[in-house]
Design a protein around this nucleic acid. Structure first.
Length: 437
RNA sequence: GGGAUCGUAGCUCAGUUGGUUAGAGCGCCUGCCUGUCACGCAGGAGGUCGCCGGUUCGAGCCCGGUCGGUCCCGCCA
């Protein structure tokens, strides 16, 4: 009978079989204790004589083993159980010892980021490192479940594309059977096209940015949680939706990842609504009240500004989130729906960013759905509509008022768990200097 | 692309004013240990001090170059 570590208490006095990786070996002469990790947790096995005692000398840390024996209560404790090994099976040949200690999370926390990533196949096994990805899995599940219930259809758009989306971000070039091609920096055009098909769509997938940034916030490949919906009134519909969506995602993590959260001393943010501030008001607030150091003639929000705004939101509104709305057209892509400023000029956009604990985690907004306005917007930026004909098709045949947003999964996890770097929240991060493992 | 900073054992680090054989903790190996859970005790292995050159009687340490990393900014999620 093969069972999991979590079930061991129900089998006191019975013969069972368990398997897992050896995480700790404590040898006491004739008596050896093994702490073994399976997919449900850990359990202790005690080897006391017999054939297992001979075999246990060849056990190394992280070796996969199968153990058969009797479940016993630990001496002096009624709440804990161990398995007395009667049969020990080494499921691997002799192994070399691991280069870093992975059983203790305190040791793992001390390891430098390059080492942590160089030995990723090993370090991912540490419970604290692993927990990051359990939480991301629950985030994705909750994102899916919430949107599915709300009438969204999950889609998968191509990652090999012929043209870029926004012009700004750099693209990775590919050789596609002799033709130039690129890795998609965003599913933007395709998810908009699919609004004409399903009205509401979402996608969780990788996006690629060939920018040579090297910071704790950036990855050159990251997971984007995208959604796009039709027949909206304005961008406020998206803000409301995302607020509910995030509540649902955080509630799920709280429900299913209590142990993982406590490893990181992380607290789930609680909120009923998320405060909003207009971009121009944010700039004014920063310059007048928040002692923001900025010498630009036309200041733009930088990471320092984002931190200051979040500190302000926490103090004034008791919110760990803040929506920045009404970004100028100059800092938004051509497809962002224009909006009038205080002087009546169409200089702003119905777009927004969401800041969470000092870092931008979401960008979104209403899009232009009228073909002529879209073409004018392209031309206003020196883009040639001829090279966007496939995208423009859907507008020529009719698109509803629509909009969407994209959440950066790794950044969301980083901010929730208080990780030092976004790279820790990617299984095998790709950055300026790293293409392996 | 701009700036700052760091390279010493498998990992994390110390290394005095330039001085003889470069250290610590953890890990690893050997031995002892029958209730450990950061097990304990005794012993041991492990280093081209990133690399190249220079100054010096003498360089881990000073100087120049080079390679690699980390962080910040720009840009973005």
């Amino acid at each position: 009978m093969s069972i999991l570590s979590s079930e061991i208490g129900a089998y006191a006095g019975k013969q069972v079989s368990l398997h897992g990786h050896v995480q700790t070996i404590r040898s006491m002469g004739g008596l050896t204790f093994l702490v073994i990790r399976d997919r449900a947790g850990i359990f202790q096995a005690v080897v006391n004589g017999g054939e297992p005692a001979t075999l246990v000398k060849d056990v190394t840390l992280e070796m996969p083993v199968r153990i058969q024996g009797t479940v016993n209560q630990l001496p002096k404790r009624t709440d804990a159980f161990e398995i007395a090994a009667e049969k020990l099976e080494l499921l691997s040949e002799h192994l070399s010892p691991p280069p870093v200690e992975i059983a203790k999370s305190s040791k793992m926390d001390a390891i430098s980021l390059p080492t942590l990533l160089d030995y990723r196949p090993l370090t991912l096994r540490n419970e604290k490192v692993r927990s990051i990805f359990k939480i991301e899995s629950v985030f994705c599940n909750a994102f899916r479940t919430f949107l599915n219930k709300d009438g969204f259809v999950e889609i998968h758009t191509p990652k090999i594309v012929s043209t870029g989306t926004e012009g700004g971000a750099q693209l990775f070039r590919l050789d596609y059977f002799g033709k130039p091609a690129f890795l998609a920096q965003s599913p933007q055009f395709y998810k908009q096209i699919m609004v004409g098909v399903f009205e509401r769509v979402f996608e969780i997938g990788p996006v690629y940015r060939a920018e040579e940034h090297d910071t704790t916030r950036h990855l050159n490949e990251y997971v984007s949680m995208d959604l796009e919906m039709g027949f909206i009134e304005n961008e406020q519909d998206l803000l409301t939706l995302q607020t509910r969506l995030l509540q649902s995602m955080f509630n799920s993590v709280e429900e299913f990842c209590a142990a993982e959260l406590s490893l990181h001393d992380a607290k789930i943010p609680k909120f009923e609504s998320i405060p909003q501030i207009q971009y121009v008001d944010a700039i004014e607030l920063l310059l007048r009240k928040l002692s923001w150091k900025n010498e630009e003639a036309e200041p733009d929000l930088d990471p320092e500004a984002e931190r200051l705004l979040c500190e302000y939101a926490a103090k004034e509104w008791q919110s760990e989130f803040i929506y920045i709305t009404g970004y100028p057209r100059t800092v938004r892509p051509f497809y962002a729906m224009p909006m009038t400023d205080k002087s009546g000029k169409l200089s702003l956009t119905k777009s927004f960013d969401l800041l969470f604990r000092g870092v931008e985690v979401t960008t979104g907004g209403q899009r232009i759905h009228e073909p002529n306005m879209l073409i004018e917007s392209m031309q206003g930026r020196g883009l040639n509509p001829e090279s966007y004909l496939d995208y423009l098709q859907c507008f020529r045949f009719g698109m509803p008022p629509h909009g969407g947003l994209a959440i950066g999964l790794e950044r969301l996890a980083k901010q929730l768990l208080g990780l030092a770097s976004t790279k820790q929240a990617a299984l095998f991060p790709r950055d300026r200097n790293r293409l392996t493992p």
